[in-house]
Design a protein around this nucleic acid. Structure first.
Lengths: 345, 345
DNA sequence: ACCGCGGTATGAATCGATTCAGACACCGCC
DNA sequence: GGCGGTGTCTGAATCGATTCATACCGCGGT
């Protein structure tokens, strides 16, 4: 059933070394023996045992990708970018999901270490654990994804989330909104904190520039999900009209969709009565029936670049890089308020 | 850097066998030596080499899940179900994406075979390749996911897609629609063909029962994606009003969302002027601003059940099962046409 | 004194692919 | 004839964890 290289050698009448050569450096083997060996392999249905290869070689042919939320299309898009590069390098990808739970992250990292992966791409959970440092100490290349590097001695691929938050808020201010909500506030994730900081900065600058009434409300739903968005929206609706925000910047598109859904459910017209800006620009943002204005980042490129850096880590003259991508605001209908929102409420 | 069990043994002053026992059957080792060994492990930062373990044990601690489209939330939901069961069994999951391309499927199956995975869960590409049969011949358990088994000698977890298609079509017929479109027609995927068959059956029965004008238009976009849905919708819009369908059953929710988006973009009101029923009931269906009526299937349960069957395959008295889940129509706004649709166009 | 026995610990053999020093054949050339 | 070179193939050593037959210790029973 499970044939070894030895069985193949026997059948082809050659030594095990020759079979190995046929598998790995066929140019060293003469045409005749090569076809004899390949025939034997086909006849026996031989499949190389990767564990044995790995044991000898010392490292595997795979890399790990650890994400926060496999249900968020942002991460599957990143994964596609990673996969493209990893595939091209002849490696395979082990995709792990943590749901932002440190215990799961720890378990996954332990497994990946046992598997002797060539490297790990990770969007860490809110609290940056020591496990990642431990991995790096063991000599396993690690590249942070969608997360700024705390120190310069490692690679990280991120986007300028402060800028992203700022772009979103400035857009809403320009369109006449004064009372703005930021939805997703209390998350421990630095990405969210930076988006928040960008929004705060934009609002404060507007105020300093003399814009009257510019004001920010921060809402912190339990989850950064569609359900979380709904929860936050219903809280917004509960605020007395005079103080109620007329627009929201959401920390991701999932929440933005939840907000949109809840607003529509309560008969609040989007964008006329309430404008929404999302973050990530997942495909579903454009596909929403009120297409969502969103802060766009090159999701696949992020994954690709991260994977490239990871592969480069094991090359001799590697220098650590921390590329930061620039987000772009994609304006769609959800923020195209047609009248002065201030006058309306 | 990379410590072996031998280094640990040296440091703790015991034999390699004892270290192995501490790792795998700690109850056989006396308290004193056990803590000595554990201390040595901690001090050296020892991490077990999984390849060596596997080589000796003959099989790995992981299973593969091969899906058609990682971007489709349906599959990530299935994956969550699988992961739950697989995690609980102390195994890890290798997630592979084929994009319905046989070549990629082949490559992934080859890798999984080389890794000696304990089993494979797979939603095969349209053309059922011989690679799966070859895997099973090698003794690797394989369970089909969201796909009926061609023969009774294997496990498969599916839903009754003929029923699903029928439920969707009957619902639209009951609400007064006569000219119905099925979007996603020419796919080679049996799932889609069955949904189609269900729709056809419902329409024909209606006609036989004397319902005048019941009629089906089949549209076959290039992809079963949001873009495919948009493409199909714009073709629907191009049909002269007198013959144009007033409602559509889509082969999955991604396409339904695309249809919805395109209709809204052209000023066609949903559901008043055009009703839409999706399939799969992904979370984004409910979150769409016009919440989508959809044929719901227990996505996580599907994954869970499939994983359970896979694990059971390697147990002695295993009998193959082909559970078929019943889909349920979840009615939301996208099909709640308020007036007689026939009168309108 | 000897036996038997449970509780512990040992270490050589094993899994299968890779690697590399060395064997062998054959060729051309001095 | 002898020598270096090239092309091809061999087979033992190796990677690290697991396993199992074996040995050892101490102790109660006879």
């Amino acid at each position: 059933m499970t044939n070894s290289i030895r069985d193949v050698a026997g059948r082809a009448g050659v030594s095990v070394g020759t079979v190995s050569n046929v598998l790995n450096r066929p140019e060293l083997v003469s045409e005749g023996t090569r076809t004899r060996v390949l025939d034997a392999i086909a006849e026996l249905g031989f499949v190389r045992n990767e564990s044995a290869r790995q044991l000898r070689a010392g490292s595997s042919r795979s890399v790990g990708l650890v994400v926060l939320d496999i249900s968020n299309p942002f991460f599957t898009d990143v994964a596609r970018g990673v996969e493209e590069v990893v595939d091209a390098a002849g490696l395979s990808l082990i995709l792990c999901n943590t749901d932002d739970r440190p215990a799961r992250e720890k378990a996954h990292l332990a497994t990946l270490a046992e598997q002797r992966v060539q490297g790990v791409l990770i969007t860490p959970t809110a609290e940056l654990s020591g496990d990642i440092a431990a991995l790096r100490d063991r000599g396993v290349p690690v590249v942070l994804v969608d997360r700024r590097a705390p120190t310069a001695d490692q690679c990280a691929v991120s986007t300028d989330d402060v800028l992203g938050g700022r772009l979103a808020a400035e857009h809403l201010l320009e369109r006449g909104h004064r009372r703005i909500a930021f939805i997703g506030g209390a998350s421990g994730l630095p990405q969210v904190q930076e988006r928040h900081a960008g929004v705060v900065a934009a609002v404060e600058e507007a105020r300093r520039a003399g814009m009257a009434g510019a004001d920010l409300t921060v809402l912190s739903p339990a989850e950064l999900s569609v359900a979380g968005g709904r929860e936050a929206a219903s809280r917004v609706i509960g605020i007395p009209a005079a103080r109620r925000p007329t627009a929201a910047v959401c920390a991701n598109d999932l929440m933005a969709l939840g907000v949109l859904q809840e607003m529509v459910r309560h008969g609040v017209r989007v964008p006329d009565e309430f404008a929404i800006v999302g973050y990530d620009d997942i495909d579903f943002a454009a596909a929403a029936a009120v297409p969502l204005t969103s802060v766009s980042k090159p999701r696949q490129d992020l994954g690709r670049r991260a994977a490239e850096l990871l592969l480069d880590e094991s090359r001799p003259g590697h220098v650590h890089e921390q590329p930061v991508f620039e987000p772009v605001l994609v304006v769609r209908e959800s923020s195209m308020t047609r009248r002065d929102p201030g006058a309306e409420l």
